[in-house]
């Protein structure tokens, strides 16, 4: 039973992971990725990790939803009505992917892996909680602080208001002399590059 479920879920995970880069719509791609994550989450539940597995599903549903939103906002062809190929260095990438898979598989098959199953009847969720707020609290808190820093950084990077005014109205620094040309680097489409050759 577990084996059949594992086989089905892992096939689903790999197949939908592959479809991410094959479907012609970005929204479809992000939801294919979500399906892949859900399959991995359910495998984790099979592996006796009910919290991590379901938390993965929860997190990834939200994350892929946000991703789909960004897809529709920024990307060409969000609904997939026109065929689209947006790849570069294709052969090299295929080779790299295959080599990574083959190398990792070889490493798995050739190495001697230790065997120590999760003992029956262990409350893994409670153990995780005690670990998070006990011996590993510092690590866990570091993750929290990192997330906070990320939030601040993301807001700074994406904020509409720049240092010298709104970004869509130019956001130019003031000139070095009163009324002079704006200081700093020139935008590329606005004249010459500042390095030699032209």
């Amino acid at each position: 039973m577990t084996d059949a479920l594992f086989l089905a879920l892992s096939t689903l995970a790999i197949w939908s992971g592959w479809r991410v880069f094959r479907v012609d719509s970005m929204v479809r791609a992000s939801f294919q990725l979500m399906v892949s994550f859900i399959a991995v989450g359910l495998i984790a539940v099979l592996l006796a990790a009910p919290y991590i597995g379901i938390a993965t599903i929860f997190m990834m549903a939200v994350e892929m939803m946000v991703m789909a939103l960004f897809m529709v906002m920024f990307m060409m062809n969000p609904a997939g009505l026109n065929p689209m190929v947006m790849v570069h260095q294709h052969r090299f990438s295929i080779a790299a992917g295959i080599i990574a898979f083959a190398g990792l598989t070889a490493a798995v098959l050739l190495s001697d892996l230790p065997v120590q199953r999760v003992p029956e009847g262990v409350d893994v969720v409670r153990n995780l909680g005690h670990e998070l707020l006990g011996p590993s609290m510092l690590i866990f808190e570091t993750a929290g602080v990192t997330l906070l820093a990320t939030m601040i950084g993301a807001v700074v990077l994406s904020a509409h208001s720049g240092r010298y005014g709104a970004s869509d109205t130019g956001s130019l620094p003031p000139g070095l002399t009163p009324g002079g040309e704006p200081a700093g680097r020139k935008p590329e489409n606005g004249g010459h590059h500042h390095h030699g050759g032209h």
Binding site: F31, P50, I54, A55, I57, F58, A61, V62
Partner: peptide, 12 residues
């Protein structure tokens, strides 16, 4: 957590 996952997937 399962209920939370259902909430998140409802949005999807």
């Amino acid at each position: 957590v399962l209920w939370g996952a259902c909430e998140a997937l409802t949005v999807v």
